[in-house]
Structure formats: C-alpha cells, structure tokens
Design a binder for these strands. Structure first.
Length: 646
RNA sequence: GCCGGUGUAGCUCAACGGUAGAGCAACGGUUUUGUAAACCGUAGGUUGUAGGUUCGAUUCCUAUCACCGGCUCCA
C-alpha cells in the first residue's frame, strides 16, 4: 500500500495510507476532532467526511464552529425533512432541497394532499423521531446511471429522474440514510456534502409552506415548498426566530397604519399609493435633499409629461419589449401610453440641442412618476406598486467620460446611503442571452463598469447574464438596520436608445458620434425607498425626517398659555411641532407621543418651567435629558436637523 | 399570472348554522395631573362583494375582488 501526503491548514504535511477518507484523517489528528467533524474542505470544495483523500489534497476539517459547515447541516436537515414527508405522505415525490441563505427548503409534489401550516408540527415531530434514531448519511457513486433513472421512474420519482438524466456525466452520487443496524431507510439523489449522521441536528424549525414552480419555470408544474431553518444549537435558532419576529414588527405595512403613513384603497386600485401627510413630509425632506444634492453634482432638473403617444414607445422599443407592462389610453384618434419610464422624454430633451464633446456630459434628472402594469401577485406594500416615482437621471456622455461619470454616481450613492446609516452590497450584471447591440460594445461596457468599481476599490459580485437587454448594470443592495438587503440604486449602461433615437454629438475631430447613455437612480423609487426607510428605522425616523419633530405637553390646563407660546416659537423656527393641550394626563400624552407616534422630542412644562422660563426635554429612546431654555433647545435641534443626525 | 392562506367596528381580535362582542381609538362628562395608559358613560358593523344551499348564513358552497406567504417578474 502506498502513502499519500495531505496538507493541513497550518501548512504541515501528514502522511496517510492511500484510500483513506477525511474521517480517517480526523481520527488520526484527534479523537475530539473526529467526534466534532461535520464536513471538510478539500481545495475549494466543501465535502463529506466519507470522501476519499488524494495525494496532495489540502484539507481543512470543519466543525460547527466553521461558518461553511452551516450549509451542510441545513442540507442534511433538508434530507431528514424529505424523509419525514415521505414517511407521512408515501406518495410524495421529491424535487430539490437545497440550503439557502437563512435555512433550507424542499420541494415536493404530493398527489391528493396540500400541505398547510397544520402539517408542519407533524413533519417536525417525525423529523425529531428520525434524528433520535441517529441515522447515518452514506454517499454512493451511481455506477449504472440508466438503470437508476429507470428505477426512479418506476418509483414515480420523475423529478429525480430528470435531474439524474441531466447530470449523468457528472459522476452523480446517491446519499443513503441508514439506521444503526445498517438498514437503508431513505435515499436521495444528491451531490452532497452531508453530515456523517443526524446527531448534529439539534435545532431546526419549519417555517412556512409555499408554491414554487419546478425549476423556477412558470410553465412547469407548481410544487409544494416547505421553508425551514436549522442551526447548530437552540440559542442560535432562537436568535434567528427573534430576528424574524423583529422583522415582522418593522413591516412597513403594519407601521403605516400605526403611524398614519400611507394607504391603498380598493376604490383607487391595487398598487396605487395614497401618501398621508406624515409620509409626505418624510418624502418632502428627502426630495429637498435630492434636489440640492443634484444641483451640487452638476445635474439639471427637468419635468416631463405623464403620457406620450404610442409612436414614441415604438421608437424606443418599449412597445415591443415592454408592452405587457404598459397602460394604454385611447383618445378619439390617437393612442397614448402612460409612461412606464422616463428615458425617452429625457432623450427628446437632449435632441432639442446640439452638443459637442466639450458640452457633454449632459445630466438630466427628474422625480418622474411612472406607471407599470404589474402581475397582480407581485404587488407588495410600498415595495412593489403600479404607480411610482423614480428619482431618475440620464447622463449622456462620450466614451472617454464614461468611467468618471460612473465613479461620480457611485460616490453619490455612497454619500447618500451613509446619511441614512445604511450599508450596501454591489452586484454587477452582465450580458443576458437576449440582448441588443454588438458584443464588442458590451465587452467594453462591462470592462468599464469593472474598472470603475476597481478604481473605487469596491467589492462586488457578478450576476452573469442578469443585465438589461440594452446594457450591463451595477446594482446596489441596501442593508437595513437588521441586516436585510433591498434593491436600491442602479446604474445601467445603454447603447441601444442613443442609436434608436439617432443621438449625436460632435467630437474633437469634427465627426458626429453617438453618445453613451447612463440610466441611474439613487433611491430607486420614492415608494420603495420609503418602505425600506420605514423598516430600517422601525418607524422611528431621525429628527430631520420625523413627520412630527416635537410634541409640546403642558401638565395642567393652567400651563396651556405658556405651552402655546412655546409652540408658536417652535413653529416660527420652522420646527414640525404639535401642541397637545387635551385634558389627558401628562403620562398618557408622553406615552402616546413616544410609543405610538415615535416623536423624537417631547417638551413637558408645568409651574417650575414657567417660573424658570424653561422646557423639560424628553428624548425618544433616552428618557428625560434635562431642562433647557427654549432658545437653547431650538439651537440644539436645529443643529441636529442640519447635520441630519441619526 | 400561478400555488396556498386570510378578509368581522378606524385599529387589534372574539363568536363559527339560531341572527355579532371585547380592548384601544372616537365622542360626552368627571378629573388638572411632574415624566411611558385617570375614571364613568355614549355611539359605532346589510361580518370584502355577488350569487347559492337552508326555516334561518358571519359561520356551509360557488364566483369575484383585495390582502398575506411564496414562485415568476422587478424600481
């Protein structure tokens, strides 16, 4: 028997007999490691412990302490769930069951039974039973693929048969779940990796059931998906479940009712937002920021109509590419389209003048309200609506100016998100299968975006084939206060529209050339961004955005006159203030202002304050912060507002 | 659009074949309060909408609309 050399993470080399597995390696290192080993990494791949080692393999053994092992735990738990479901519903056909970001799911096709929330506890207890059996997961290479496909088909496992057919040349493997006597109880076509056995599975929770198309294609059958999660221990699981609860409390649709922010009415239609005064105030502040910041950064602000003749959309190509999302309005002779995008209008503004390379870039910005006919099931609160206002801008520039322009936008986005205390992740989406323009331009554009990101030293992920049909794009995923991500700003390159509209500028050599066009939004849409902000702040907007900044609370009726003076002075200083002179108890008024309305400052005043010509200040989340003269208080909050303090 | 769930007072929920009830909010009164809910009372609903079954429907059935969890799509 010959020896092989294994490289351990510390760089040391260990000699092992040929044919040994990762598990043997773990045992040879220490008993404790062997007991705690969940999986391993060989090279770049996470593998099961049963994997046979090869000479020169770089091996890292994973325990529950290594972040990479969590996906293995979840994947194995998903197999246990599939096994439990098949035990309870023998007719259930298995589709796929991967680990996902915060847990895992498994898709089933169960004839004659529709899973509901009530089934989840039953499945969970069956899983508990299986886990207690201390089952092992063993990996087998499928030698005779065709025979196995036939077997799957005979069992009715049509989805597994389809998957195996597809992966027949990838040396497919089968994971068999066995009890302690070695009896095979369950098997699943699976690439792995898996835990050695179920003893690691200690904390899991089934979350919800949902429909999902087989392979994500809406032409395929709809399967039943069970979402679940698993962690190494109950503490982590509970923490995650608390997080879900916290997220639910922050739901902008719930907070909308409590804080009187917006509503959607049947009489108007779904996906159309009524902005109540409170949210309109937040929007006004944000629009003010948006306008002044655009001026500073060399943008010109424009306004364009809400509809245009069909002809315009024929030229832009939207009539063919975007038709199902457009609303048409028929006048006696002419057909109009409610604008789903602002770009064609900005292009026509470009066309109104002649440009040279010296007068570019031209940056046109608009808070442009667009209407898109969304599929009914897609609508959601403020996040997905039919009518919304994009903080849209289009930049027309020369190829030489492109990278600087992209960098400037990245700066703008970065600067803006910092104001809201939001972090972000960046994704670059490249050429899709269906695209317009020539590949050469596409390659250049993708390279340009990459360069711009490199100059800024920004880390990003690449979404192959996820670009728009007219150009590649950079997306910014906002991370809110509790770590959830939201689609926010995007920068899209466009070679298509400038050509369709035959846009020109005169270059330094006198020749006429076609400019490059950039589409970009910073917030995305006012609606979606407000939704994100509400959840980010859990409804407790910072002072500069708060619909009501200060509540004035006189303790008894005899203090009303003084309170009125305080109120008038604050109002005069441009503060959004409310005088609460109802004959309710002071405690009631404080509680309502802070808890229900989330007002940042409550000013309480009684005999003492009148005597000293002061106000007693209570800050949201901080409690009483002392007595201030009114001027000192105004000065303090004016500074906070100006600095947009969080 | 698709799969599943849910629609009861302004809000949160109860009743589930016998004709709808509570808390908060609102309104009226009492209380005049010292840092997160004073007390008493009044009013408020063709139970999402339209059909059907039934002596009788909020409850059962059908259709439809909206919302929720997802899939797909997307700012």
């Amino acid at each position: 028997m010959s020896e092989i050399e294994i490289v351990l993470p510390d760089g040391s080399v260990k000699k092992m007999d040929e044919g040994v597995s990762v598990c043997d390696l773990a045992k040879s290192i220490s008993e404790g490691l062997a007991r705690n080993a969940a999986a391993a990494i060989i090279g770049d791949d996470v593998v099961s412990l049963g994997t046979t080692l090869k000479n020169g393999d770089k091996v890292q053994i994973l325990t529950s302490k290594d972040p990479q092992s969590l996906a293995v735990l979840r994947h194995s738990t998903s197999h246990v769930m599939a096994q439990a479901v098949q035990n309870l519903f023998p007719q259930a056909k298995l589709a796929i069951g991967p680990a996902i970001e915060n847990g895992f799911y498994y898709d089933f096709d169960i004839e004659g039974h529709t899973l509901t929330e009530e089934d989840l506890p039953k499945i969970e207890s069956e899983m508990q039973r299986l886990v207690k059996e201390n089952l092992t997961f063993e990996c087998y290479k499928i030698e005779d693929v065709d025979a196995k496909i036939a077997e799957f088909k005979a069992q009715g496992e049509i989805y597994k048969a389809e998957l195996l057919e597809e992966h027949k040349n990838d040396s497919p493997t089968l994971y068999i779940t066995k009890d302690k006597d070695g009896n095979a109880l369950f098997n699943d076509l699976c690439r792995g990796p898996h835990l050695p056995n179920t003893s690691f599975i200690k904390a899991f929770k089934l979350l919800n059931v949902a429909g999902a198309y087989w392979r994500g294609n809406e032409k395929n059958k709809m399967l039943q998906r069970v979402y679940a999660t698993a962690f190494w221990n109950k503490t982590d699981l509970d923490e995650y479940l608390n997080f879900l609860e916290e997220a639910q409390k922050r739901d902008h649709r719930k907070l909308a009712a409590q804080l009187d922010l917006f509503s959607i009415r049947d009489e108007i239609g779904s996906g159309l937002i009524l902005w109540h005064p409170n949210l309109a105030t937040v929007r006004e502040e944000i629009e003010n920021y948006w306008r002044s910041e655009h001026r500073k950064r060399g943008y010109q602000i424009v306004n364009t109509p809400h509809m245009a003749k069909s002809q315009l959309w024929d030229i832009s190509g939207h009539s063919s590419h975007y038709r199902e999302n457009m609303y048409f309005i028929q006048d006696e002779e002419t057909e109009y389209v409610l604008k789903p995008m602002n770009c064609p209008f900005h292009i026509l503004i470009y066309q109104a003048n002649r440009y040279s390379y010296r007068s570019l870039p031209l940056r046109l910005a608009e808070l442009g309200t667009v209407y898109r006919n969304e599929r009914s099931g897609a609508l959601q609160g403020l996040s997905r609506v039919k009518g919304f206002t994009q903080d849209d801008a289009h930049i027309f520039c020369t190829p030489e100016q492109l990278i600087d322009e992209i960098n400037a936008i990245i700066d703008f986005v970065d600067y803006t998100l910092k104001i809201f205390g939001m972090d972000y992740e960046v994704e670059l989406s490249t050429r899709p299968e269906k695209f317009v323009g020539n590949i050469d331009n596409w390659d250049k554009a993708e390279e340009g975006l990459k360069q711009a990101l490199a100059v800024k030293n920004i880390k990003y992920e690449i979404n192959e084939g996820d670009g728009a049909f007219y150009g590649p794009k950079i997306d910014f995923k906002l991370k809110d206060a509790i770590g959830r991500t939201w689609q926010g700003a995007t920068i899209q390159l466009d070679f298509n529209l400038p050509e369709r509209f035959d846009l020109k500028y005169q270059d330094s050599d006198g020749s006429m050339k076609t400019p490059i066009m950039l589409h970009r939004v910073i917030f995305g849409s006012m609606e979606r961004f407000m939704g994100v902000l509400i959840e980010h702040y859990a409804g407790a907007f910072p002072l500069w955005l708060a619909p009501e900044q200060v509540a004035v609370v006189p303790i008894a009726d005899r203090h009303a006159e003084y309170a009125q003076k305080v109120y008038d002075k604050l109002l005069n200083a441009g503060i959004r203030v409310r005088l609460d002179d109802r004959s309710e108890s002071m405690n009631y008024k404080i509680r309502e202002a802070l808890q229900d309305k989330k007002v940042p400052y409550v000013l309480v005043m009684g005999d003492r304050e009148i005597e000293n010509n002061e106000v007693a200040v209570r800050a949201r989340g901080k409690g009483p912060i002392g007595e201030f003269s009114l001027d000192a208080f105004i000065e303090k909050i004016e500074k906070e507002i100006k600095n947009r303090e969080q």
